[in-house]
Design a protein around this nucleic acid. Structure first.
Lengths: 131, 131
DNA sequence: CGGTATCCACCGGGATACTG
DNA sequence: CAGTATCCCGGTGGATACCG
């Protein structure tokens, strides 16, 4: 067992009981979708991802890719060279997920104006209705 | 001379910039999807939802439905009676979202075995590969 | 009945510094 | 280059009690 740990855990909880929850937990976090989309364009190495994700810290990027790799959406390819090189790319499973995200994204694009409008209404106090 | 002023603290409400993020934030939380699904079956009143969502507290249920209502996915109908009665039902927007969730759910059902298998592999130490 | 009011634990996300 | 090691902050989710 290695004694170095970045916290990319999730061993115990009732993980895996609801497939949809698993997927949402996997990519619903702050950088999951962007990571999948970037890797959908082409294979990236660590620093390429880092530069394409403005604002993310190394710690969080590492956690994100490790988590996605654990779930089988991306693969982590380590070249045993010096200096080290690590590439990330989508797996077949990840490509399938990307298609679903694209579909959801299309729907979101088409309807997010309604969401924004609803928020304005609600925030203006026109929320509840009385039949 | 005006000294440095590097610190631009970013006013938080960058809500609404990315449609897909908005959707994921809206229903990616712990009880969002279940709420949408339940209301997709039929209109529910507050306590009906509560009984159908084992483990949720009143506070969280209230927050969940209020948030979904604010985003326009469900409507909140208040009957000015005593004792009070409040119904929740999907809006057209919410029904559209439910269809997307159903699609994603179908994909998740079809592929979550691969996710679980990937996790087992990863957790067993067969994670990285070296070409 | 349908909520609020408090209080609190936990975890995701981040800033910064250091390393094999 | 590709990470770790620490420390920290805010927000989500929860437990419990009370209210109009």
């Amino acid at each position: 067992m290695s004694d170095t740990h970045i916290d990319v855990p999730v061993p115990v909880p009732l993980e895996g009981v609801c497939p949809l929850r698993d997927v949402l937990d996997a990519v619903g976090n702050k950088w999951g979708v962007l990571t999948i989309v970037l890797l959908g364009e082409r294979r990236h190495r660590y620093n390429e991802l880092h530069k394409s994700m403005p604002g993310i810290s190394q710690r969080i990027l590492t956690r994100t890719v490790r988590s996605l790799a654990r779930d089988g959406f991306i693969s982590r390819i380590v070249y045993p060279t010096v200096p080290p090189r690590v590439d990330y790319e989508l797996t077949d499973l990840g490509r399938g997920l990307l298609q679903q995200l694209n579909a959801l994204n299309a729907w979101a694009d088409a309807h997010h104006e309604e969401m924004v409008a609803a928020r304005r209404r609600e925030d203006a106090g026109q929320g509840t209705q009385m039949p």
